[in-house]
């Protein structure tokens, strides 16, 4: 049993599975309406606290308006998953395509792409996001866009490097001799070779994207209200930290757990795919 836990990331996988389940099954498992305020039960502590109002019904307590913390966390899961999957997906697809084309054709195309990637890399991530939010206004699509925007350059570099090494392999030359077109070589012969590294980068990058999303929502530039958000839960309740610590403690713990699980899974994938990249 312990041997299995040591070899496979069972717990992180379970946490991610639970997150995905929560996001999908949200409406069936919500204990309370996450948006309904009830001032009579404001700042009820979690159920195990020695307090007259504490009850199992408000499992993790309530916030300043009497909304159930657990329900808000569950409702926030769906938005987070939606935003992160859309952002990472877009970033990876764009990054992989650009990296593949740039590495395959080389020459002037490659030069232009790499200079653009350089330019993206010197722009401070959070600040350029704030500029975009200022210009386009806050919104779910803006958020997905900016998060995709900061995740694509990383994928370009890796995919490009991998493509460069794959395209000089013999089987690629043979495919060309057999009359395969450039597009066919890229899709059928090189893409399968870079898929592993793409999955690893996507998994490892997810944690970072979740943290950035949470930070933006905390600063008020992320998921717009009334859409529930873990980051905003913490910022809304931070003034009550001495009176009602549970209101900001639990959302933060959930973020940390999800990010940690993502990092664990990413490390594990990487070690399986390429043990020479092992870090820990």
């Amino acid at each position: 049993m312990i041997e299995v836990l040591r070899r496979y990331p069972v717990i992180p996988a379970l946490i991610i599975a639970l997150l995905l389940f929560t996001a999908v099954a949200e409406q069936w498992i919500l204990p309370h309406n996450p948006e309904r305020a009830d001032l009579r039960v404001r700042h009820t502590p979690p159920f195990w606290m020695d307090h007259e109002d504490a009850s199992i019904s408000y499992f993790l307590g309530t916030d300043a308006l009497g909304r159930d913390i657990l329900s808000k966390i569950i409702a926030g899961a769906r938005v987070t998953v939606l935003v992160v999957v859309a952002a990472v997906g877009t970033g990876i697809i764009v990054g992989t395509t650009v990296g593949l084309v740039s590495g395959f054709f080389g020459g002037i195309v490659d030069d232009v792409v790499m200079r653009i990637v350089d330019a993206w890399n010197i722009l401070p991530g959070l600040l350029i996001i704030l500029v975009v939010v200022l210009v386009l206004g806050q919104g779910l699509w803006t958020l997905i866009g900016v998060l995709a925007m900061i995740s694509w350059p990383g994928a370009v570099r890796l995919v490009r490097a991998e493509t460069l090494s794959l395209k000089s392999r013999e089987y690629v030359s043979l495919a060309r001799v057999a009359g395969a077109s450039n597009t066919r070589i890229m899709i059928r012969h090189i893409l399968p070779g870079v898929v592993n590294i793409v999955i690893v980068t996507a998994t490892l990058g997810t944690g970072n994207i979740i943290l950035t999303e949470a930070a933006l929502s905390f600063l008020g530039a992320g998921i717009p209200p009334p859409e529930p958000s873990w980051g905003r839960m913490i910022s809304e309740e931070r003034q009550y930290i001495d009176a009602a610590w549970w209101t900001s403690l639990f959302p933060g713990l959930v973020i940390a757990m999800v990010v940690m699980s993502g990092n664990f899974l990413g490390d594990w994938f990487r070690d399986r795919v390429d043990p020479t990249l092992r870090q820990l």
Partner: peptide, 16 residues
Amino acid sequence: FGQSVPIFWLALVLIF
């Protein structure tokens, strides 16, 4: 732990 927690939350915990 350091690579996984949101820093604004860590700040609040340390303040608390």
